[in-house]
Design a protein around this nucleic acid. Sequence first.
DNA 1: CTGCCACCGTACGTTTCCGTACTGAGAAAA
DNA 2: TTTTCTCAGTACGGAAACGTACGGTGGCAG
Lengths: 230, 230
Amino acid sequence: MKKHRNRLLAALSPADQNLLEPQLQPVQLEKRRTIEAPNKTVDYVYFPETVIASVVALCGREDRIEVGLIGCEGVSGLTVLMGDLRSPNSTYIQVEGEALRIEADALRTILLKSNSLRELLLRFGHVFTTQIAQTAVANGRAKLEQRLARWILMAHDRTVADDVAITHEFLAVMLGVRRASVTVALDRFEKKGFIIARRGRITVADRKAIEKLAGHFYGVPEAEFKRLIG
Amino acid sequence: MKKHRNRLLAALSPADQNLLEPQLQPVQLEKRRTIEAPNKTVDYVYFPETVIASVVALCGREDRIEVGLIGCEGVSGLTVLMGDLRSPNSTYIQVEGEALRIEADALRTILLKSNSLRELLLRFGHVFTTQIAQTAVANGRAKLEQRLARWILMAHDRTVADDVAITHEFLAVMLGVRRASVTVALDRFEKKGFIIARRGRITVADRKAIEKLAGHFYGVPEAEFKRLIG
DNA sequence: CTGCCACCGTACGTTTCCGTACTGAGAAAA
DNA sequence: TTTTCTCAGTACGGAAACGTACGGTGGCAG
């Protein structure tokens, strides 16, 4: 019985850990790898340890926008839990690192045996749905700087150091805005001392200030997580 | 055994219908009634027949925006299914009419007895999450006219006639934009013959044209519904 | 060490939508 | 009828973000 870096795995009862662990494979996931493609069967469900994955919805052909972020607090492939093996969204690796994975079929088998595991994962499903809803809120009502602040905070929550390895270009795709807008906003953040920006990397310097800027656009799903999973 | 107007109830097996029906109460719901308040316990779960309910996320104090729409195709209170009795969102009646409701606790008891019912509701949960994700997409990338078209189509799907009883003011709150912007956009729709607008009422006149305008911002959750529930 | 390429900084005219506010019109109440 | 209230139409200046584009820079590959 090992102490898991993934917070869902760490929250499991010993019995559930015994059910899951024989099936978990450690994997290294490189940047930009797609772990779920739109409308394709989900083969594996991933429990991130140090990776951060983006759940991305398509709009039209090559037009994408992020709807959610999953790191060490969660799990990918929730659709498996909801009784289906595919979803219209895609999921891919935003920040590389390690994860544990399990075959989707194996997980479904285990879910039939353990109510407590299913309930834990459903509670995370609720948290994640809340996150998506708050993304809708932020996209509809927040200014770019607030959305950017929200993203940085969510990424920061899911990293060990204060560093997030990401380019402006990628961030722009995630937020559905111009690359140049991201550059300008990050510059302003840096001048205010919120972050230190280096090529392909953002270091959080003043988290409190970023939280203040994000205001109520950050924190709702995080509070739900704390309440329901701990 | 009656033929239900709610599509989820209509899709139930006879056994599940027998479990549920004794607990279902018909209710009339008036406009603007709140059936779920943020962070309050959900008392009843509603299966709309002719009502349309909005799921609304808060941003700050009195700043709201719609993240999803539930009508005769669905059910409110999905959070009950996810193992919790409250959620940060609120749900209220957008278009008045009839619904069937069941006490949340009674539903939870029944869910323990019927896997098939739980699976059906979870599949709807997946569809609804998809709808929220597409709301995030639309809020992030679509122009106001496209978002408005999307809303009209979704409301139209959930009404019997071609009429939707809604004011510009309400629509503006739902979409998180100015009331005046809605007026201007609806005017343009009317001049193009897409709709007929009367005081507090929109009548769909040329659905195809509205679909064309909404483009890929409409249809993703609807396709999931068809695929998973039918 | 040099060339290349991904990444970042900046600029400018344009579009979309906002904030605010005033006016008129339909419906319901007095 | 007259009043009152909600709802809809219109206007104007301004902010935010867009599309596009060009030049600079850090860092890796040859």
